[in-house]
Amino acid sequence: MSGKRAMIEVEALHKHFGDNHVLKGIDLSVAVGEVVCIIGPSGSGKSTLLRCINHLEYPDRGNIRIDGKLAYRDEIDGRYRAHRARDIAAVRAQVGMVFQHFNLFPHLTVMGNLIEAPVHVLRRPAAEARRRGLELLAQVGLSDKADAYPEELSGGQQQRAAIARALAMDPKAMLFDEATSALDPELINEVLTVMRDLAAGGMTMLVVTHEMNFARQVASRVIFMDHGRIVEQDTPERIFGAPREARTQDFLRSVLDH
């Protein structure tokens, strides 16, 4: 890992869904400007890990730090005390998240989606938020769709709008939760291109993905997860070229062989 400041730190994270132990002690650090891709079979806990980092799931044990600060809750004598809703929201506002199913707000236009949180969470003037929104729409190639409703867009356009919506908060880091998994094959690349540009621009990114080529070309580090554990992490060259663990080898063989 680089000697740079850590933006996202995860310590000894555990999460159960009932009897199912989905995260079995995850330790992870993402440095400023780093692009970390998490790969692994479905059910390996990748998405749950990402959702825990944004506190959309509540881990049973473990801590999360965002930009050096303990986030969402304090640990006092082995018990956790949740922060106030306002403080939790303030941390989330600093971390952008992109979902598999886009989750655009259907009752708002694309521009409405983009300015909603900047205006109502960051209290920016609407005109200023709109100006920034137009810049971001240009960046993701949707300049002509500001007044369209989400239902009028293709999946790829919706996901690019969702990325712009997250960027409108000027986040310190971006989380991508299988951002292209719900897209038709011909629409995947337009989204990956936006993500590639973002990475090239220096954004700190943690990306759960099934797109091995994206991970190979864009990631500064690749993490392979299986059964709730980080099995192996290394540079993309090493992970894809010479994986050390048998499970990593098996997984890569199964996804790259067809």
Binding site: L56, R92, F99, H101, N103, F105, H120
Partner: peptide, 18 residues
């Protein structure tokens, strides 16, 4: 209203009330 809407709002830093 699907859970994804709550998730998206929360991820943008909205409080539950907002």
């Amino acid at each position: 209203i699907p859970r994804g809407q709550h998730d998206a709002a929360a991820a943008l830093g909205m409080t539950p009330t907002l």
